[in-house]
């Protein structure tokens, strides 16, 4: 008769245990910059209200914990926490104040996505920093929009949701869940190591700069080598 209540209580206990574990991890790995209660310090912003999605993105891509707070921007690097630990950290930070939750596969998966629509949305909202197909680009003073090649769809979704570092955030009120899904599907089509390049070598997908460099070095360079070869084999009446 009291079974459902017991179950709820058990869930709650599990939940609070997770938060408890997360807090321990937080105290060791994060508190020195973000403050003991996540209130932030001069070395790191407040984490109250950033939500579980922000934690999952920052820690799940290795951007956090950061080596320094002085760099122009934090690069993605080796992930040092397990996904279970990241979940615990996320649960703890989420408990500090309401914020976006970690998206589910249903939200970021490819089912029901419109790739072409995603491409249009990407060019309209993302390409000005991330390039046509998400190869990345420069921002001011050493900051940059990173390449999106082979980034986990979940992390792309979380980035749009939370706007990490220099990126603006695109909450559902600005860009619907369906639009986010479309964009992720478009990137999955054109910017993974399985994406086809119908024209041959992509040359970085960076446009005319890399094409010009290739044209000079291999195109004209190769032809000059051919010219030298032809000129060296002349019809000279030379006795050898």
């Amino acid at each position: 008769m009291f079974a459902p209540a017991d179950k709820a209580q058990a869930d709650e206990t599990a939940q609070s245990l997770t938060i408890e574990e997360g807090k321990k991890l937080y105290t060791v790995g994060c508190a020195s910059c973000h403050g003991t209660g996540g209130q932030g310090t001069s070395d790191g912003p407040s984490l109250v209200g950033v939500g579980a999605a922000a934690v999952d993105f920052q820690v799940g891509t290795g951007r956090m914990p950061a080596a320094t707070s002085q760099a122009a921007q934090l690069p993605d690097k080796k992930v040092i926490y397990t996904q279970a630990q990241i979940d615990q950290l996320a649960a703890y930070v989420a408990s500090l104040g309401a914020g976006p939750a970690i998206p589910t596969e249903e939200q970021y998966g490819p089912e029901g996505a419109d790739i072409a629509k995603g491409g249009e949305l990407f060019r309209n909202n993302c390409a000005q920093c991330h390039n046509f197909t998400g190869k990345g680009g420069a921002l001011t003073h050493g900051k940059y929009a990173p390449s999106l090649e082979d980034v986990d769809p979940k992390h792309i979704y979380e980035a749009m949701l939370t706007g990490p570092q220099n990126m603006p955030s695109f909450p559902d009120s600005t860009m619907s869940e369906q639009n986010k899904k479309d964009i992720i599907a478009y990137l999955g089509e054109v910017n993974t190591d399985k994406s086809e390049s119908p024209g041959g070598m992509e040359l970085g997908g960076l446009g005319p700069v890399s094409e010009g460099l290739f044209g000079w070095i291999f195109g004209l360079g190769g032809l000059i080598a051919v010219a030298v070869w032809v000129a060296a084999r002349t019809a000279k009446a030379k006795k050898s």
């Binding site: 000005q128 920093c129 991330h130 046509f132 680009g137 094409e211």
Partner: peptide
Amino acid sequence: STGAQPDW
């Protein structure tokens, strides 16, 4: 888009 350049 970023990286918008003309040919060399």
